[in-house]
């Protein structure tokens, strides 16, 4: 079976997904404090990498990247509730792209699998 990444339309579709997802993240008061002072271009590239991974596309994300990349945010209070919000916003993004519930659940499971890396547990 093809991955959601392929069914969505590969890399081109990813750009549209990043636009929707990033806009949600920046406008959500529960999480946007963590994104306020970052370089948007770098951040968009990271989100593209993240979405590629959770959509089952070719990626080079590692647990080590996830740990290193979020350590400074743990010091600023990043916790489980914020990861919950990100997964919720990811689901909302997929809904807007017309993705079905089964696929959304699968994406949430993959996203869930990096929770401990992100929170350095």
């Amino acid at each position: 079976m093809s991955s959601l990444y392929e069914r969505l339309g590969g890399e081109a579709a990813l750009d549209a997904a990043v636009d929707i997802f990033y806009r949600k993240v920046l406008t959500d008061d529960r999480v946007n404090e963590f994104f306020d002072d970052v370089d948007m271009e770098q951040q968009a590239a990271k989100q593209k990498g993240f979405l590629t991974m959770v959509f089952g596309g070719p990626h080079n994300y590692t647990g080590k990247d996830m740990r290193e990349g979020h350590k400074h945010l743990l010091a600023r209070g990043l916790n489980d509730t914020h990861v919950d919000v990100i997964i919720e916003l990811l689901g909302g993004t997929l809904k807007e792209l017309g993705v079905g519930d089964t696929d959304i659940a699968e994406v949430a499971t993959i996203a869930e699998s990096v929770r401990d890396d992100v929170l350095d547990r």
Binding site: D15, V18, Y22, R23, L26, D39, M40, E41, A44
Partner: peptide, 20 residues
């Protein structure tokens, strides 16, 4: 540039359409 990049993105411009 940082401030406006965010403003223009939230105002609807696509990330790929913002050159800085």
């Amino acid at each position: 540039v940082k401030k406006q990049r965010q403003h223009c993105f939230l105002a609807g411009a696509g990330l790929k359409d913002i050159y800085a």
